[in-house]
Write a protein that binds this DNA or RNA. Structure first.
Lengths: 126, 126
DNA sequence: TAATTAATGCGACTGTGTTGCAATAATACG
DNA sequence: CGTATTATTGCAACACAGTCGCATTAATTA
């Protein structure tokens, strides 16, 4: 079950995502929120927002879960096979536009694909 | 720096991987080792084996790192863009043969691609 | 065989994320 | 508006993967 009540914390989290160009981990998100927002609350909000299809999540380096707003995802076909890029130097994560061609497998039914590309971002390359 | 000495624990770990059809997390690996093999030792062996290019690692669900033997990877071009599949029901992880077509990006230099496909394996589908 | 040093075991410690529970506050309804 | 309902919150404790320092053990070297 997802978000049903409009609370201060919910608004703060949504604003943080709207203002962010990149994907955010719970940790990064909390750094952008007032210090008095509870850690558990943040995790619970992220869960609910994901249930509602408002954000999607994926794992990046160091076993850190990142979240980003779902922009052009048709909620019906909510598969998220688009790729994410993480810079090995600054650790920043961005959502890419590209959909990834998921190989067809005859032994498995693929419901979801997580693609994380890693390398150097433009800023860290120069 | 990687593995240099041939120890009992090293042999046990390598045997476990050779006998496994699927990829193993540190946890799963430890279940297949004698109980007296220390947890830290397992993690350190995995690190060394990865440094040496003997195994490769990737993240699966629940923030768990999985490891598998590198079979046909040319050590020179050690990029590991091949996909992995994880069953949402039994959580088993396998290495797939398929290489994934990595999209070319002009703003980023991609050094590595991690592709995790999720769904149902043949056993869990019936 | 002795010296060197990689590997190990242990225990304590991170850091991410979860949970139970009581208190608080957003909504629904009269 | 005032009250009842219940979603949300804060807190503290917890779970778990993985790391680290350090003293001990054991594989290799000479």
């Amino acid at each position: 079950m997802g978000v049903t009540r409009k609370t201060r914390n919910l608004e703060l989290v949504l604003d943080a995502f709207r203002n962010a160009q990149e994907a955010l981990s719970a940790q990064l998100l909390m750094e952008r929120l007032p210090a008095d927002v509870n850690r558990s609350t943040v995790y619970r909000l992220l869960d609910r927002l994901e249930d509602d299809g408002v954000v999607h999540s994926f794992l990046a380096s160091e076993n850190i879960k990142f979240y980003a707003l779902c922009k052009e995802c048709p909620p019906s076909v909510h598969v998220h096979s688009h790729a994410h890029f993480q810079c090995n130097s600054c650790s920043q994560v961005v959502c890419l536009e590209q959909e990834v061609v998921v190989p067809t497998l005859n032994q498995y039914r693929v419901d979801e694909a997580q693609v994380l590309l890693k390398g150097q971002c433009a800023t860290c390359m120069r």
